[in-house]
Simulated scan of single mutants.
Amino acid sequence: MDDDQSYIHSYPSVQPPPDEGVISVDVSRDVLVDSMTDMSETPIPPDIIASVDMTNENEEENGRLTLAYERLYEIPKTIVERFSDHVKYLDISHNKITNLDALVYFKSLTSLIADDNPITENCCLPPLPKLELLWLNRCKVASLYPWVGKLKESCPNLQYLSLMGNPAAPSYFNGGTFYEYLQYRLFVISQFPALNHLDDRKVTEDQRLEAQRLYKRPFFERIAKPVGLSQISSSATWNSFQNKITTLLGKDKPNNRNLLI
């Protein structure tokens, strides 16, 4: 490692001691070692190092780091030390990561792909004010509240968010109902004013207005005058209700049913 690279002593400890199964990285030998499974030493893919060879003329192209499918329990300290100042796009999908505290050092991060990790609602992201894209598909987030509020505090400028496949994101695929899906969608939209795209579709202005109406009113006012999907359906004919839902979902034709909800 170059002399001008300083060791990050304050890097948070997020895993048990090395003898309890933490994957370690030895860049001097370019290998990953997993003491839990006693797997043979596996070479680090060359693109992990080469793709983040930060040169002035190629910084925009090389600010991408992929650690997908590496059987990691945490983001290795060596990777944080070497690349955190420069990486803008980080892919840590398909690993065993449950704690994202190490991301506090990725000051330039704008895109994070963390699909297929056992991340739950107990995992809070550190402050990432530059983060615009976050994918947490097929993780283990089971409850939106208060997790979404904490996510908003950490990532206030999110424009693209995908939570598909989580228990907290109802769909027909995980046993959710149509109403649960719509309530989930409007609640998440209400928390992120700059959000342009949620899950598999764009956020429409109608959805933003409805989210504001349902979830931005004072808490006690909502209790006194509850307004929800059940009230909408009971106070309107089916045709008007269907038109309302069609508008909220950004459909041009009522018959174009979304199979993902």
Rank of each mutant, 00 (worst) to 15 (best):
D2L: 14
D3N: 09
Q5N: 12
S6K: 12
S10T: 13
Y11R: 00
P12Q: 01
S13L: 15
V14G: 10
Q15K: 10
P16L: 15
V25Q: 09
V25D: 07
V25E: 05
D26K: 07
S28G: 07
R29T: 15
L32N: 03
T37C: 11
M39I: 02
M39A: 09
E41Y: 11
P46W: 02
D47W: 15
I48M: 06
I49N: 09
V52I: 02
D53K: 06
D53E: 13
M54Q: 10
T55C: 04
T55R: 04
E57W: 05
E60L: 14
E61V: 08
E61L: 06
E61A: 12
Y69K: 03
Y69N: 10
Y69E: 07
Y69P: 01
P76I: 07
V80I: 14
F83L: 11
H86I: 00
V87M: 00
L90E: 04
I92N: 03
I92Q: 07
H94M: 14
L100E: 00
D101Q: 15
T110A: 14
S111Q: 12
I113D: 06
I113H: 06
D115Q: 05
D116E: 10
D116R: 11
N117L: 05
T120Q: 11
N122M: 06
L125C: 01
P126T: 06
P126H: 12
L128W: 07
P129Q: 04
P129D: 06
K130N: 15
K130S: 14
L131C: 08
L131T: 09
E132Q: 14
E132L: 14
L134V: 02
W135R: 13
N137S: 08
R138W: 10
K140C: 13
A142P: 00
Y145G: 03
P146C: 11
W147V: 13
K150Q: 13
K152A: 13
S154H: 06
N157V: 12
L158W: 01
Q159M: 13
M164Q: 12
M164L: 15
M164I: 03
G165R: 08
P167V: 06
A168F: 11
P170T: 10
S171M: 08
N174W: 09
F178S: 05
Y179Q: 14
F187Y: 15
F187E: 14
V188A: 04
V188E: 06
I189Y: 00
S190L: 04
F192R: 13
P193Q: 09
P193L: 05
A194G: 03
L195D: 00
N196Y: 00
R201N: 12
D206T: 08
Q207W: 03
R208P: 01
L209Y: 09
Q212Y: 14
Q212G: 12
Q212M: 15
Y215E: 04
Y215K: 13
Y215H: 13
K216T: 05
K216N: 13
I223Q: 07
P226T: 01
G228A: 06
G228Y: 02
L229W: 03
L229G: 00
S234Q: 11
N239Y: 02
S240W: 09
F241C: 11
F241P: 05
K244N: 08
K244A: 02
T247P: 00
T247A: 09
L249T: 10
G250A: 11
G250W: 04
K251F: 12
K251D: 10
D252G: 05
R257D: 11
L259M: 05
L260T: 03
I261H: 07
I261Q: 11
